[in-house]
Design a binder for these strands. Sequence first.
DNA 1: ATAGGGTTAG
Length: 395
Amino acid sequence: MMIESGTAPDASTAGYLIRALCRDGEPTVAYHVLRDVSRKRIIPDVVSITQLISAFSKCGNFGRVSEILHLMIASGSQPDLFTYQEIINALCDGAGRTAMVDEAFRIFNDLKLKGYACDVVTYTTMIDGLCKSGRMEEALLLWSEMVANGIQPNNYTYNAIINGYCKSGNIDHARKLYDEMLSKGFKESTVSSNIMLAGLCLHGRLADAINLFAEMPNKGIHRDVITYNTLIQCLCKEGKTSDAIELYSSMLATSIRPSISTYTPLIMVLCEEGRMTDAMELIKILEAQGLEPLVCTNDFIISGFCRVGNAEKGMAWLSRMLQSNLKPRAETMDRLVECLCSLGQVDCALQVVKKMFDISYILGSSVCHLLISKLCGVDSYQVCELLNEIVLVES
DNA sequence: ATAGGGTTAG
């Protein structure tokens, strides 16, 4: 309407639109606004373009990020520390999966060379990224460099490094840093407690973990869904299933709502113990709360039904999975074939095998042997050995 | 005229 009425949009018009579109999760539309106005030599403010860069960084579209940076610089506008902070943060994100920490580190070091004054947030982001990819030595070097530059670590920085120590197995160093953090006047928080809790759990120090959990309210630290999930997962891992379920029950008595990560370890351990009725009860509960089981939970359930010899239920869940376009793990299919064979339901087993072929899985050799044995009524290992011998003799 | 950054489980 504005353009049709003959009023030319300016940089502010574009800036408003770009920020609003980014906020509403429409970065591609925002990008087209930027392209449109830049053709008329109109360049929105750095804040708006930074939001756009942030949106594309977060979804991993670094090609587009680089393009916008070039457009920005070519039109005489300079990205600032916030702009690069968003890119570095996104490159560090991904929990080791898609983390491009090397690239983040390159940009970070480049920033210093270009004369940008990195601050506590930039340093902390980079330290956290290095810690998360297991590069503790470099993270500690950066910490020293930061302090040498007159920037004091804050509670975020401490949490990043404490988390790094916890994850890399040095729980005693983590503890030392924790005490140092407290001595500098930074307060314990839900986040710092959750980090230590996860560290203790990771190293099997269940008694210490339970103690920390118990002490949180005494110290005035609020427990959140992550606190509960971390301890529930730990109890499940340590075989304390009834304690895990008890903790889950006590969680329901609080105002904290369980998440899918509350249920996943509980259902997994119930399936492993063959407690399929209890597992299915939890599935019903989580679905009633509008949650959806993870793909791996479906695998646990099928394997669990196989474990208790209920191939029929296992088959039903497999169908449910395939109908939802979820891909079961190959081992899950193997378990089901094995279970059906042991029940003498070779035809059903072959149906599963057909479904495996449909999703382009290859039969494992042990399942192959099992099927051949069932179909031929002979021990296929012996047949194979015989065949091998024949091949040897002939060659 | 308006407005931007970092943490914990999975």
